[in-house]
Design a protein around this nucleic acid. Structure first.
Lengths: 226, 226
DNA sequence: TTGTTATTGTGACTTTGTCACAGACAGCAC
DNA sequence: GTGCTGTCTGTGACAAAGTCACAATAACAA
């Protein structure tokens, strides 16, 4: 019983609207959600032909990206705490193939719910319906923002922006290869190397194998706005 | 009464799932949906701060696009028969600004439903929930396809493809300016002119002011696949 | 040490985007 | 007709981005 409560507590932490939800909603969650861990490197959604479980993400990170034949790829969005793969589920449900790939880049903890149970929740509870709508509109906004990025913005600006919102060590170091950045932004490794080299020439960063050290935040920031 | 029935008939024509739906669903539609016409050139969604009406499109065409500061723009998707702007509605409902612009490019006929009524339908009827989910997943697939296009595919290929799926007169003429094509694909007018000129040099098309005549479908098709 | 692999650098080239124009065409006024 | 006024298209020069082939280097294991 104590364990059950801590499970619900964990889920409420990622899905705060459940705190204000009715007792029936919360009891259903307790009754059907199974906490599970999925290790880094796992590709989700494509295991079986159908997905019988829907994953509500409690922690960790899932990268959803689109690959090209050429080998290039681009990140569309990420799933984190409070997200879930309803979108994939809805694609699969409506028999459209989901047009992207998702994989776990940071071990995730999920509350797994059988698809038919989740469907039932959406049928019965408005809070779940609202959740799903909000999530879907958020996703669409993100992907539209990606369209704008690739169609209209310069790559140097996008790289500067990207570097600035990346986690850094206390020495302002970023551990990431040029290839990784290219795959994030949908460009090619050579282009990233070239532009980073320019940044280094301008004393904005220092490059070494596998790490980028940020020297001059200010100018880099102004670049990311230009 | 005969009028009411013909209204429902019109709506069923665009939303065929209503034919198989329960009597309660259909009666609600008859009771609340108002047929209206919106003329070409109207910008939708941004009239008032909130949209109190949801439009179910019966005919015509709405272009949803993203503009850039430079003046360039790109089409994200279109709404036609059987579509609706639930997405916008959901964005507005969740207080995210809708990150694009929509305007009527071909007079549309819509069944207008008050937002709160539609919300009620979604709460009560599974057919409407399914409709909304299918629509949203379709939209997302479309926008993801757009990301792939701009990130990974060559402009000449995209233009060839675009020309081939455009409506033609019986003389294989397409009435459209280079600027229009550029705005469709998210590139610039000069690039379109340049590439069309190449196509003309290769005897694939003939250019004249405001029209493009397709000469050699076969080679153009093979280009569009390359 | 030597080999192996991942990562980065580089030069030459093509494609795409930008800018600043110059013509060319259609419609309309006169 | 002539001339005016937009809109549409063409062009040349350049910058930015993507592609290709290959060299150089760092990290690391055998």
């Amino acid at each position: 019983m104590g364990e059950k409560n801590s499970t619900l507590e964990k889920i409420c932490d990622a899905f705060p609207f459940l705190r204000d939800a009715g007792k029936d909603v919360r009891e259903d969650v307790t009754a059907h959600a199974q906490i599970a861990r999925i290790p880094k490197g796992t590709f989700i959604f494509f295991e079986g032909d159908e997905c019988k479980q829907l994953a509500l993400v409690l922690s960790g990170s899932v990268r959803v990206y689109k690959p090209a034949e050429s080998g290039r790829e681009i990140t569309l969005y990420r799933l984190g705490k409070g997200d879930s793969c309803v979108l994939t589920a809805s694609c699969i449900f409506s028999r459209n193939p989901f047009p992207a790939i998702a994989y776990v880049e940071d071990d995730i903890e999920v509350a797994a719910v059988p698809s038919n149970v989740f469907r039932d929740w959406v049928n019965r509870f408005e809070v779940w319906r609202n959740y799903v709508f909000n999530l879907l509109s958020k996703r669409l906004s993100e992907v539209i923002a990606t369209v704008e990025e690739v169609a209209f913005r310069r790559v140097d600006v996008r790289i500067a922006e990207f570097l600035l919102r990346l986690p850094r060590t206390n020495n302002d170091e970023i551990r990431m290869t040029h290839q990784d950045i290219a795959m994030e932004l949908g460009t090619s490794r050579e282009v990233v190397s070239r532009i980073l080299k320019h940044f280094e020439d301008e004393k904005l960063i220092i490059l070494s194998r596998g790490t980028i050290t940020i020297l001059n935040m200010g100018i880099l920031t102004s670049k990311s706005e230009g």
